[in-house]
Nucleic acid binder design. Structure first.
Lengths: 226, 226
DNA sequence: TTATAATTTAATTGG
DNA sequence: CCAATTAAATTATT
């Protein structure tokens, strides 16, 4: 896979995260300044990438659609891919130092107490947090076709790396962090780990060998492409 | 609480699991060899525990009563407590490498397909597995006193940890996994949908402070002590 | 039918 | 990444 196609995958997957981030990230303090300050963090050039202009534009669109606030909330795999210095695709997104607000690296939506209240029907919780639509994301249900596809992918490789998860995310339309969680839970339930059996038995694929070839033909999962 | 009393609690609780494991674990292939091969997995000594002989004997009894097959099926909390290397109470139960049968680490009773069949009225499932009495455990009923005690404990702390659940299990005679399920269901019913009030409202106890003191005086629950 | 035990699964936390 | 546990939703029993 060349750089451009990989970049395309990553950006596409990042775009699918947009449903997550309005929940995870509080809105920026000053809406008027958010855009300019946000775009200012991009470097002027990205060595190793050919179409600089398109890349810049795509990244701006990426951030705009994601509604990433001053402190970008990317998950670890995302950060790793975007910030990895040795990759030829190193983009280099920098985060501004937190000013006054205690910006926690928020992969998690809320602290413990807020989480408690989140479980209640929310009668008295909406007198603040004006723009937050619904702070409770929980419990997304995947369709039959999505689950079937995930199960098939799990059978092929129960340990997909970030790029593979991006592929799966693109096909299923599920954000990549949800894919990651799904595989974690699936491994916990259906993969006996740690115990002794040295039978082949769905093992973590060796990092040395080529990642397993996934079946991404549309004809096999027409419902996902409806 | 010293090591011996904690060990006593854990072992007692493990013994109360006996009703669960004949369902969770398939019977060993060869009944005549199960005992000897089972006892062989114990180490010769347990550093940090005083009464080695009594401990050995207790563990043998533990395994015997639990009818644990070659691949012990302990739930995760149990494994964590029994295998935790830094605990002074580290017992160190080893599992034999699986020989020919595909032994799964089963917290769940059956695999996915078998699990499906369990939900059905079971018409065709009993032509094999001769000694299994009833593969569907479901629906234990707790006595008035047990329920009352659980409710009181729930009022004191709706989130008991493993050790606390072991205490409750010992007093009530209910296996620890059932205790856990009971608290989960209780929280779902009486904690979350409480549209009523942000008053003290039964919150998860902070991990910093001492775990709440449970009332374990026999005089309060005479019926539980026969 | 209601109450509730049990099951499944996505999500969270901490290491 | 894993282990443990949670809430949410559902299933199923009494």
């Amino acid at each position: 896979m060349n750089c451009d196609s990989e970049l395309e995958q990553i950006i596409y997957t990042a775009l699918t995260l947009q449903d997550d981030y309005p929940v995870f990230c509080p809105p920026p303090r000053d809406q008027t300044k958010s855009c300019s300050s946000l775009f200012a963090i991009f470097p002027d050039s990205y060595p190793g990438v050919e179409n600089q202009g398109i890349l810049q534009e795509t990244i701006r669109e990426l951030y705009s659609v994601l509604e990433i606030p001053q402190d970008p909330c990317l998950n670890r795999s995302m950060k790793h891919h975007l910030l990895e210095p040795k990759k030829t695709l190193s983009i280099g997104i920098y985060t501004k130092p937190a000013s006054n607000q205690t910006s926690k690296g928020c992969k998690r939506p809320f602290c413990e107490e807020e989480q408690r209240e989140c479980k209640k029907p929310r009668i008295e919780t909406d007198h603040f947090l004006p723009s937050a639509p619904n702070r409770c994301r929980r419990r997304t249900i995947y369709s039959k076709e999505q689950t079937l596809f995930l199960q098939n992918q799990f059978h092929l490789n129960p340990y997909p790396d970030f790029v593979s998860r991006c592929h799966i995310a693109k096909i299923t339309g599920i954000p990549e962090p949800r894919i990651q969680v799904w595989f974690q839970n699936r491994r916990a339930r259906h993969l006996l780990r740690g115990t002794n059996s040295q039978v082949p038995q769905e093992k973590r694929s060796s990092s040395a060998e080529e990642p397993q070839c996934f079946i991404f033909r549309e004809s096999q999962y027409p419902d996902l492409w409806g």
